[in-house]
């Protein structure tokens, strides 16, 4: 199971608490994680990726294993600890404001 952490506002929107655990086929990529997330929680469609283009919304970032995966191809495999469920994939809101 892949571990996913999403921002508090999206947890409220999806009606979930804490970390999410998703079935994702290998190779585990950001696109596959987000596809699985949106399939399980349709209310999140459009909230992380734009409708249509599926581009990451500009004020969101994707982190894992202390690295930033926001700007790599969404089809690039994530590190093994994410694929093995040892480390979570983080969807993080950009810091904006004081």
């Amino acid at each position: 199971m892949i571990r996913v952490v999403i921002p508090a506002h999206l947890r409220t929107l999806a009606g979930v608490d804490g970390e999410l655990r998703l079935e994702v086929d290998a190779p585990v990529t950001p696109r596959r994680i987000l596809d699985a997330l949106e399939a399980g929680y349709p209310v999140l469609r459009g909230a992380i990726r734009e409708h249509g283009t599926r581009k990451r919304r500009p004020w969101l970032r994707f982190f894992a294993c202390e690295e930033d995966f926001s700007h790599q191809s969404p089809d690039e495999p994530l590190p093994d600890p994410v694929a093995q469920g040892l480390e979570p994939f983080f969807v993080v809101g950009a810091i904006a404001g004081g």
Partner: peptide, 19 residues
């Protein structure tokens, strides 16, 4: 600004809501 647009609908005068 972070999460875009959501449309909410209530059918009970604002007590409960559905996206």
């Amino acid at each position: 600004g972070w999460f875009g647009q959501i449309v909410q609908r209530s059918d009970d005068g604002g007590k409960t809501w559905e996206a």
